[in-house]
């Protein structure tokens, strides 16, 4: 009984125990060696996750962490699995935990990392394989805030819906979000209550549509957000703002939503 208690409640599940895995030495005649440690896990294999160590020649690959990952995949171990697409910080697919911070592998320079570069998947999401996590719930939460303009007024017959310079300005610092999930997966509240708490990324997006002068449903959007779990699990811990690779401030967007909810009562 005591054994099962200590295993079930006070210890991590068995498949969270990390083991040291393979080590791949640097290629001969390497001129600038970088050591990289990568989390490897294949849930279907039935084996525990492991940490593989790679040594690469930084002089023979690009400067970013993503360049190193691509070099490893094409030259050392082709089974290494990760997501990437744009390799310039606009698609949001290469988000992972590098050197202790959630960030984009394609915009994180190896020179800005510690001597041993540690790479893990985004925290607290189910791992599909290696650095690829299951983002289904994250995307569903994003869809739940209706990320599009909702209106009652039909669009003008001869033009698009207009927006003034100031009105457009209000979207700055919001529209740039690439939904990489770095912020949400760095948020302790999202770790503990992610089933119901929407998390900083989705809340920043929710505010983006509330702030859009062309949208006509700010009130309904606020109604949907006013909830102890969907919104008020945010305790202004600021991890989100600290980690956002696009330099955005989700914590402020959340504070603005809370402000509007008080403001509309006066």
């Amino acid at each position: 009984m005591r054994d099962s208690l200590s295993k079930g409640i006070f210890r991590l599940p068995l498949n969270s125990t990390l083991k040291l895995g393979k080590s791949w030495p640097a290629p001969q005649n390497a001129s600038k060696i970088r050591r990289i440690e990568i989390y490897r896990y294949d849930p279907e294999s039935g084996e525990n996750p492991r940490l593989d160590r790679f040594e690469i020649d930084a002089d023979r690959c690009g400067p970013m962490v993503l360049d190193a990952l691509i070099a490893i995949k094409s030259e050392i171990d082709s089974t290494l699995t990760f997501r990437r697409s744009c390799r310039e910080g606009v698609c949001g697919s290469c988000s992972m935990n590098i050197d202790g911070h959630n960030t984009l592998a394609c915009t994180k320079a190896m020179d800005d990392c510690r001597e041993l570069i540690k790479i893990y998947p985004l925290p607290h999401l189910p791992v599909v394989k290696d650095l690829v996590v299951d983002m289904t719930h994250f995307y569903a939460q994003y869809a739940s805030i209706k990320p599009w303009i909702e209106t009652q007024t039909p669009p003008p017959a001869d033009r698009e819906r207009l927006q003034g310079k100031n009105e457009r300005g209000r979207l700055n610092g919001l529209y740039e979000c690439i939904l990489c999930a770095c912020c949400s997966t760095s948020c302790p509240s999202y770790w503990w209550n992610g089933e119901r708490y929407l998390g900083p990324a989705t809340l920043l997006q929710a505010y983006r549509w509330i702030a859009d002068s062309r949208d006509e449903t700010a009130g309904e959007r606020l109604n949907e957000l006013e909830d102890p779990f969907k919104l008020y699990r945010c305790h202004t811990i600021m991890n989100c703002t600290d980690t956002c690779p696009k330099g955005l401030n989700p914590a402020k967007a959340i504070a603005d939503i809370k402000k509007l909810l008080i403001e509309r009562q006066k």
Partner: peptide, 15 residues
């Protein structure tokens, strides 16, 4: 997934 994310909806309280 969307049904799960929406759950039972907002309770309109917390402010």
């Amino acid at each position: 997934p969307l049904a799960r994310a929406r759950g039972l909806g907002s309770v309109r309280a917390g402010s």
